[in-house]
Structures are given as C-alpha cells and as structure tokens.
Design a protein around this nucleic acid. Sequence first.
DNA 1: TTAATTTGACCGTC
DNA 2: GACGGTCAAATTAA
Length: 328
Amino acid sequence: MDGGSGTVQTLLIHELTRGHELLGQLLANLDQPTVTNPCKQLASEILLSIERALCIAKASILESPRLNPSYGGTDSSVSPRSESSEQASKELERREMSKKRKTLPKWTNQVLAGAGERPEGPADDGYSWRKYGQKEILGAKHPRGYYRCTHRNTRGCLATKQVQRSDQNPSILDITYRGDHTCHQKQQLVFPRGETEQEQEQEQGQEIHPLMDRVQPQHHQPELLLSFQTGLRVRTTGSCIKTDNMVFSSPLGMENCFNSNFSPSFISSAASESNFGGANPQGAESDYKEIVTAASSAVDSPFVDMDFMLGNIDFDPDFHFDASAFFV
DNA sequence: TTAATTTGACCGTC
DNA sequence: GACGGTCAAATTAA
C-alpha cells in the first residue's frame, strides 16, 4: 500500500474508538432500570460507526489492486509477448504470488469429518474448492490436501485451504484457510441434516444476521446490534463447540487484529477449555486454535470477514478496545 | 466434451 | 538439502 494507508488506519481507529465510547454510554444506560430509548439510539449510532469502520477497512483493501491480480492486472491476451518474456513474467508473477501468500491472513478450523467423507475430503464450508495437490507431511500420519477456490482463474480469487486429518484424532480435520474469497461467491451454508437456514434459525433461536453476510449491502437496522449481541451470548455461554459436524476456531483476525487488548470472553473462555468432550489435542500447539465455535451458519462469516477486512491493518498499540463488555 | 482429481516435478524458503 | 506449497500433464469422472 501507499502512504494513504496511515490515514485510513487513523480513520478506522477513530471509528472503532468512537464505537467503543458509545458502547460505554450504552452500557451505562443499560444499568438504569427503565430506560430503553437512549439505548436504541446509541445502539444505532454504534452500528453506524462500526459500519463506517468496516467500509473504510474494505476500501483500504480495494485500494491495493495488486492484491487482486485478475482485475486488470495481467492480461496476456492484450499484450503479446515473446516466449522468453512470457516466461520471465511468469516467474516474476510466481515470486509475487509467493510474497503475497505470505501476507495473506491464515486461520485454522477443526472439523469433525463425516464417516462417508474422503480421507482428506473437506467438509463443505459453502465455497467451491478445487483440489490442486496432496502431499505427505513430515511427521504427520495423514497427507495434506491442497485446495484453491474454483474461481481462482475466472475471478482471481486467491483463497486456498489445506485439509489434513488430525494425527491424534483422525475423525477431526484440520483445515487451514488462507486468503479471503474475492470471488464473492455467496457462501452456501450447509446444514447437516438437510435443514434449511430458517429451520436452523428456529432451532437455535437466533438470527442469521445481515451483518454476517460477506457480500456487501450494509443497511442494517438498529436492532441488529441487539440481536447480534444475543447471538453472541448464546455462543459464549455454550461450552459446546459444534453444529453437527463443524468445529470452528478463532480466525486469525481476532488475535491478530486486536492484539492482546482485545480479548473477548467468547474466545478466551472457550479456548481454555477442551472441546469434543474434553479432548482437543490440537488446541495447544496450533497458532490460532482457540475454539470459538458455535452454529456454523451464524459464526462463520462475520469473524472471518472482520478478520479479512482488518487483517492488514496495524492497530495502534495503545488502542484499547475492551470488547468483553460488548459481549456481556 | 468438460471439469475435477491425481501425482510427479518444480520452486522458494529455511 | 529438506521440506512445504504449487504447477501442470495425465487420468478419471460426470
């Protein structure tokens, strides 16, 4: 990025800070027994503030066209090259990609593998993946499968994932995601028992929030925050880490973006405990395996989304965002 | 015929 | 040089 990123970051931090302040006021108001209107007003303002922050973050990413090679970047059909120059550019491209990949956000999920699934078969996470490789990994009992987004060529989507069976528990798949889906394929949520979204909603008593939709439109109602909060509370209190077969762990972002000052209770509490009935052998050694989990339909996108939007923004070390209050 | 998967080779990093 | 990640030709499936 360029020099403008500093300003963007400042704006972002400003918005988030403001959101934080408003939140403080909201919580203060909540302490009063009968007040409801100020709360709604504040919630609305907070929501707007946060939305602005998200837009800024998104804009900052879009500002960097290099992150999106397919959009106007290398179009070999336009400029004919000699064979050697083409090869050279390929090599260059490869190096660029290599660098780029390093900087891509990365996080890990653990997924209970279904009985009928292929050895490295990824649980369907709603995106369409194409396998491009498989490799025996040193010290691992099971090979690692490499997948990339189906729309890599058509839309330049750089998202990839690696799927590997856990050594300790072969019924668990460690799935490492890398990069965001720039293809904007609408995530098709998969419901284990053939349930619809609505059915799941009803069963879980919580909403699928528009905020959690990774595809833009952001005209959210003020009450959204409240339902958002409600949903999060459900997840926080439940030590259970599952839908039927999905287990979610912390995306990179929660830890990476907010540093130590940002330690929401829903992460830390869950992380300190084991899952799968007390056995999560992977948990301690993995980079980002604090289990957040909950209903995959609701949890998946938002955190991942937030992660990506904020992923390459450095927060001021002094920036304090006490999110624990937010999720009370 | 097209799309997806497999698999050996290649490349970059440590 | 070892290892992990990716490429791309060959193969298989739909």
